[in-house]
């Protein structure tokens, strides 16, 4: 059932509508609780679109096995999605830095407060993100240290590769996940892939995970696929590689591969002089789990991240 979570009239002859698809158990079956999957807070992150589609498709295919309510919100920032921009158009503000909203604030504050109200009471809220347009990520959950004990048990069920505790910018206290946790509603952020792209394999992987979590919460009696055991990491476990000089980054390594100290990950080139400014090298052995996709890199720009001391599993 498609529902309007909130609606507000825009300048000229149009409404801003936040919609969700609510799927309930078939008549006669118990409704044991509610899970919410939200995405589209950033208009340049599309990975969650396939997750929504695939989750709805799989549940509808075996709807008689559903034992709880599933609320799916494909676009928290519909105008950003429509225009392909990260922020809320005109305001140019990051929606995920505006939570929990305010009932007497601006139009967007009110819209956000309504979204928050609609999520209250859920067993868990999963906020699906897609990195940004600059770097590519492998599927992971991000949780603030403050809510680690509450959220890690949920994140472990989601068939992801990593659980990153305290990735500061994404779990900032004005984010949806942090705000919901403060209200006592378990919520976490999932990150994967790349902005403006959809990776079907990653999408299928996390939908397997969401259905597994629903199974654990007794909300789903359909197929339950065994999930990966994610590694729990903190900033100290990561070697961050940032541009030491500005230039155009040309990768020579693939993301999600194992590298050794000194491996050349790419070259920073100068298109005016036709020279390599410097070679970007791995500073340690480990799994390259983030890699830059956007070539232009200013000093300080993120080039990659290596998960230290992770060895390739022998087959």
């Amino acid at each position: 059932m498609i529902e309007n979570v909130t609606k507000a009239a825009l300048y000229v002859h149009e409404n801003l509508v936040i919609r969700r698809n609510r799927i309930c158990p078939e008549h006669g079956y118990e409704d044991r609780g509610r899970i919410c999957v939200v995405t589209g807070a950033h208009g340049d992150e599309l990975e969650g679109q396939f997750v929504c589609y695939e989750l709805i498709r799989r549940i509808n295919a075996e709807k008689e096995k559903l034992r709880g309510t599933v609320d799916i919100y494909p676009a928290l920032n519909p105008l950003g999605m429509d225009t392909g921009v990260r922020t809320v158009p005109i305001m140019d503000m990051d929606l995920n830095h505006m939570f929990p909203g305010q009932k007497d604030g601006t139009m967007m504050d009110k819209v956000i407060a309504s979204i928050v109200d609609s999520l209250k009471g859920a067993e868990v809220v999963i906020d699906v993100h897609a990195s940004d347009t600059f770097v590519k990520e492998i599927p992971q959950a991000r949780i603030s240290e403050e809510f680690e004990d509450m959220m890690v048990p949920y994140a472990k069920q989601l068939n992801i590769d990593l659980i990153w505790i305290n990735a500061a910018t994404t779990v900032h206290e004005s984010s949806l996940a942090s705000s919901m946790c403060k209200l006592g509603v378990p919520a976490l952020i999932m990150e994967m892939g790349l902005g403006n792209r959809i990776n079907r394999e990653y999408g299928e992987q996390v939908v397997d995970g969401i259905l597994h979590l629903m199974h654990k919460l007794c909300l789903w009696e359909g197929e339950d696929i065994p999930v990966k055991e994610p590694r729990i990491i903190r900033n100290d476990d990561i070697s961050f590689i940032r541009a030491s000089e500005s230039g155009i980054f040309m990768p020579l390594a693939e993301n999600d591969t194992f590298v050794t100290k000194g491996t050349v990950l790419g070259e920073m080139i100068d298109p005016l002089l036709g020279e390599v400014i410097y070679q970007v090298k791995a500073k340690c052995d480990g799994r390259l789990f983030t890699l830059r996709e956007h070539p232009l890199a200013y000093e300080g720009a993120l080039i990659g991240r290596i998960l230290k001391e992770e060895k390739e599993k022998s087959s």
């Binding site: 507000a8 300048y11 801003l16 601006t106 139009m107």
Partner: peptide, 8 residues
């Protein structure tokens, strides 16, 4: 010159 529903 333009205003949304709910704007301050």
């Amino acid at each position: 010159p333009l205003v949304n529903e709910g704007d301050i």
